[in-house]
Amino acid sequence: MEVKKRYISLYVENRIGVLAKISGLLAGKSYNLDTLTVGETEDPTVSRMTIGLTIDDITFEQVKKQLNRCVVVIKVIDLSGVKIHKKELLFIKVSSCSEKDKAEIFRIAQAFDLEVIDYDRRRVIVQCVKTEGANNDMIALFNDIFVNRIEVVRGGSVAMEAISTQDQ
């Protein structure tokens, strides 16, 4: 059975224990989630989650059904096959930088449309807002050039259905 990367969005009640309920449900059913992000929506009583899973078709159908029957879940949106904007925030901190390294980092930033948001004599922090896949590439690139000198923090994908037909 084909396992592939999929995303769903959930509207849930914004209150204590709901995140635990959702993550507990997924864990209890042995569904491994890759990423889960959550934040309040324009309605403060509602939160929206974006969940990324690497999963096969049948299990994915079960995940959606299980989430749907949860009382705290208001709506489940399957984002597979839907035009969406999807981004992930990524910070990469590079340490023990020489001047040459710093110049290299600034060059990479320019080439890949990253932002240098902080630095001192020996360290640089780069901010990267791209898709999860593109962020993976960035991490691989930095890891390759600055071996054992990078620290990565990433936030998990957030996604929203597109207005135009442009994908991601």
Binding site: I16, G17, A20, K21, G24, L25, G28, V71
Partner: peptide, 16 residues
């Protein structure tokens, strides 16, 4: 008890 029973009941809620 809500945390404990979440996965074994239809719905669990603490009144706040």
């Amino acid at each position: 008890i809500v945390g404990i029973t979440n996965s074994i009941c239809k719905y669990a809620v603490t009144v706040r």
